[in-house]
Design a protein around this nucleic acid. Structure first.
Lengths: 343, 343
DNA sequence: AGCGTGCTGGAAAGAGCTTTCCAGCGGGTA
DNA sequence: TACCCGCTGGAAAGCTCTTTCCAGCACGCT
């Protein structure tokens, strides 16, 4: 058992190996400069003996940077974000990147704080996940912080919206929702309602707009009063769905702009005694894996969540580009039991 | 716009404020020593002007430590772990702790690597989540690494098992499963099967053992051939359930040792045309929030996932204790639609 | 034999902050 | 008036690495 507990540093290693500090350092970080095989071995031995663990902060200082990448998500317990997080973490590891996690609990003003913290930590990059409020002072604060961060040499990537000074991975919400709408019309539905998420989230807005576009192709409109806003969460879906049922005329099909809301809506309908899926069809968006077992299984738009993190990291690792780059992913409509063909 | 982009350090701030480095430092970290109000203000101004961002690595060196806490989970995309992660992150923030995330993808040998990395980073503590394999060399490697880490001043906490040299938060799996078994018997069930998770995970074993204990109270046994092992995942549940259906004699009630497997099993049964819940009852364990909307809604054992992270962080922040401490949480049986009373 | 070339090892200069130690100054007490 | 104390500000050490620059050495060439 090595008893060098606690305070072993490179100096100790060098001394034990009988070489200079510089040589020890060169051996241990496999630098470009070559070191004789004998010394090399002596240093390796000494390091192992002493159970040497290099000080990451010291390395960060000397090297002028770290291998930390900050990941900021609105809510890590939401399966949509945790899937993306998993993807980021998985692809970070082979590059030796360390992921630092921040979950803002959907309080977007904290994003700027986290970016500031990342700058202070000399983090290599940041991945910002999630749609956010449209133009306002919060957004401005975040932009300013992001600019300061990149000016200081940090790299930034965003997943989910293209309003930030950063390389961006986006999902084609609009066309996905449009395709879904058309599919639903093909299945025979004519009267729709939409559980639309927060009015100020771009993602929610795009999906609603796309859905309406798709319907319009077939001469169908969704009246504003059949569009109900709610939180982008399971409970938000439940509440919006409950509200919908209070209305006089019921739709044939409800489109919830994400799966999490859709699943909440399912429960709301069931709790109110609606027979699913025959009496009322439901569709979602995202195709969240852990939600695939609900019944009736959700018709939805699959987006390649696992790829999102990978691409974002790719941006961070690439050479910085002149202007922000964009990578788009399109969705794919998946029809399941929640929207049976209208007989 | 401050043009001190990139390389502003304390020296710059001190110079602009016309004070010494020491004074600037004292002002900026609100140290114990007092500084005259005028100078204090001048330094604050200068820092703001220059958009000064202290170098975290430098601070870590000078202070001999960081406010980083490592969180290592088997799979961040699993709702069980992401819920715990959310809890850790939420409670970390008010203490100024930064969470570093590692998801091992259930490759437990990587836990030791992460702890080593945390030691190198001079992280304040580590929270290890998840049950793990019983005694073997992997476990030994992790223990050794953990000892080295704590010897170097790091703090360690574990969630989910008590076989590590660390303060531990555990869930009383055994008594929870026992209570569930009794409840199911009270509902009228007599013939059971268990989808048991990996044979080497303590959590899975405890739940199985507790379940059997509960049944035994009522003179009911579960034959070994009615216990099917599988991965602790949705797909693991699906497969184990499928395998079960191949058997000759069907049970009346299936206990899946966690909700994620239970939900997979639900789909497997449905895909095979089993009418749920009347033809076959299903129970789970954990009461995962994002799975509450499946149909039939799962009878399960609720465990206070949100509290787990909080307690673990509490351990890290507390004074180090002589010997490892343990905090236990018990589960609560929740009966829902998936186990209707036997008529 | 003399000199250049190519290696290898070491000394030392940072990197940016915290904190101890010291000096100076003003006010209170004898 | 002389002395001491307390308070505030500054100089400098130290935290642990990386990396540049330099010196020494052996070899090969002329």
């Amino acid at each position: 058992m090595p008893r060098g507990s606690g305070k072993v540093n490179l100096v100790d290693v060098a001394r034990q190996a009988g070489v200079s500090l510089a040589t020890a350092s060169r051996v241990l970080n496999g630098s470009t400069r070559s070191v004789g095989a004998d010394l090399r071995e002596r240093v390796r031995q000494a390091a192992a003996n002493l159970d040497y663990s290099p000080s990451a902060p010291a390395q960060a200082m000397a090297r002028g940077g770290t291998d930390v990448v900050g990941l900021v998500v609105p809510d890590i317990s939401d399966p949509y974000f945790s899937t993306i997080a998993a993807s980021v973490v998985r692809h970070a590891e082979p590059h030796g990147l360390i992921i630092t996690l921040a979950s803002t609990e959907r309080r977007f003003e904290r994003e700027a704080e986290y970016v500031a913290s990342l700058r202070s930590q000399q983090a290599r990059g940041v991945v910002l996940v999630g749609s956010r409020t449209t133009n306002d002072e919060q957004l401005e604060a975040l932009r300013a912080e992001l600019d300061a961060y990149t000016a200081a040499g940090g790299r930034a990537a965003a997943i989910g919206q293209h309003i930030l000074p950063a390389d961006t991975v986006i999902v084609e919400n609009r066309s996905g929702a449009r395709a879904l709408a058309e599919e639903l019309v093909n299945l025979g539905y004519r009267r729709f309602a939409v559980l639309a998420g927060p009015a100020d989230l771009l993602t929610a807005r795009d999906r609603l707009a796309g859905f309406r576009e798709g319907l319009r192709q077939h001469g169908i409109e969704v009246a504003d009063r059949d569009v109900i806003n709610g939180e982008f969460t399971r409970d938000g879906g439940y509440e919006a769905a409950s509200e919908l049922l209070e209305r006089d005329r019921a739709p044939e099909c409800v489109f919830a702009v994400n799966d999490v809301m859709a699943v909440g809506a399912l429960s709301a309908f069931r709790d109110r005694g609606v027979r699913l899926p025959d009496e009322l069809a439901v569709a979602g968006f995202d195709d969240i894996a852990s939600l695939r077992d609900v019944w009736p299984s959700l018709t939805t738009v699959r987006i390649p969540l696992e790829r999102l993190g990978e691409e974002a990291l790719g941006f961070l690792l690439d050479e910085p580009a002149e202007r922000s780059r964009t990578r788009r992913f399109s969705g794919e409509v998946v029809v399941r039991a929640s929207t049976p063909p209208v007989s």
